[in-house]
Write a protein that binds this DNA or RNA. Structure first.
Lengths: 250, 250
DNA sequence: TTATCACCATGATCTAAATCAATAAAGTTA
DNA sequence: TAACTTTATTGATTTAGATCATGGTGATAA
């Protein structure tokens, strides 16, 4: 089956596309409008392109870096998806985020120059690696680049404040509805369907991220389906009443 | 009673000191080692100083800015303390952070150029205002300043990930213990006692921030006191067994 | 001085979601 | 293909912490 089937693939077609293009430079990359190049002039883009290392595929479960190792590079997802986790001293883990193409991983490592989380691929995925030292040098010549970086950090910060509200104040139902709509929005921004997509993360990961038990997530999926809000089969989900879902977010 | 009494005052003495100095410039400010000037040369410091607006005192409860208003400036606490909140569409609020001298407020507004939260003084407090446009211009000439900004954003991001772990995975007891130690650390970094300080925020604010009901916070304070972990009277708290407290954080 | 109001403490009760338990799918490996 | 292993679903039971209720305390003010 071609990549033109009617459900959203796990961003694999992007990977395929870019492999065919012999690892497209930033100028040709379909993500540039969501990524660091936003607002850069073509000359600057050429410069940026030179410092970027394009990775091979990371297989499901493989780590981009692990916690407490020296910070060298920021990463931008090129295809696939990742999760980041941090852990408490007794081993409990918290999924702190999911990352899709064009999104930055490792921004929280800049301060201490040490990775503060673990980043794992949720499926076969690839990244662009941005060596921070080079990025720094480049930033001195390209104010736009610096502003982009600040803006991305600020965006993630703002998103995390929203997650604090979710974790601290929302009911299980509100949490899951909020999460599904956030996914929908991000898929849509990337040119995919806002209503039909694949959940590349497990129920356990979703629950962990939202501060819920797996069982609660399962039950809620079932209930949302009974109520006609969604249709879900394994990892494929379809949002069938965005308005009602939106009302659930509170 | 003078500010030399034996318990930590609410950062009021700093304010007093700086008023006496006719609003000290960055070069003379006791906070510079915790603040934006870190790593800047003296010449650069003079430049930075020129763009900073030093505020009068904000009274308890007064807002630095409110949600959804255009972003103009970042703020750094000069004396006193602030809380930031965001709210869900149904009115529920989440306290997203407490801010002490040298800490930045408004970093999450850079991305959308709109304040995404509300910032209120918890006591009589003052700030340094950094107009973002000026900061940007200055940043182009002073790479160190840009790096400092990125670093501060990254630090807050990293802290927020920790809060996600706290909100999502920790028990009430662990939450409060973690919170008290975080305060202790921050007071200590500012030259105050790590074991005796004033809680400028209400029990309600603490509970809200940690995802707990006020009653739970009250009960835990009482229990920690019974167990000899702390001594608490109103807003004055003394940590009497840091090691045990640390063990509680998990 | 007492009235008012916001904040705090503590007991009694309730409940949303966790945990425990068992089974069923869906992947993976041999 | 069967033998495992991991992941997901669904039901029964438990529980941590919320909510409800009441009274205390301390600050501000009239």
């Amino acid at each position: 089956m071609s990549s033109s089937n009617n459900i959203t693939p796990l961003f694999q077609d992007l990977a395929k596309l870019e492999n065919e293009q012999h690892r497209a430079v930033c100028q040709d990359c379909s993500l540039s409008r969501l990524c660091l190049p936003l607002g850069l002039h073509n000359d600057d883009l050429v410069q940026l392109d030179k410092i970027i290392k394009r990775s091979n595929s990371y297989k499901r479960g493989h780590s981009l870096f692990s916690i407490d190792t020296p910070f060298k590079s920021l990463f931008v997802v090129r295809s696939g998806s990742f999760k980041t986790t941090i852990s408490a001293s007794n081993g409990r883990e918290q999924v702190t985020g999911f990352y899709f193409p064009g999104e930055f991983i490792g921004l929280d490592a800049i301060h201490e120059q040490v990775y503060k989380s673990n980043a794992r691929a949720l499926e076969s995925s690839s990244v662009c690696e941005l060596p921070y030292e080079n990025l720094q040098e480049l930033g001195q010549e390209m104010p736009q680049l610096q502003l982009q970086l600040l803006s991305r950090l600020s965006k993630e910060l703002s998103g995390d404040k929203g997650l604090m509200l979710l974790l601290g104040k929302k009911s299980a139902e509100e949490k899951l509805a909020t999460y599904l709509l956030s996914l929908s929005k991000r898929f849509n921004e990337r040119g995919y369907s806002a209503t039909e997509f694949q959940l590349s993360m497990s129920r356990t990961d979703i629950g962990n991220h939202l501060g819920l038990a797996v069982e609660t997530v399962s039950r809620l999926f079932s209930r949302f389906q009974e109520q006609g809000l969604i249709a879900i089969a394994g990892k494929t989900i379809s949002l069938q009443a965005m308005d009602k879902m939106d009302a659930l977010c509170k």
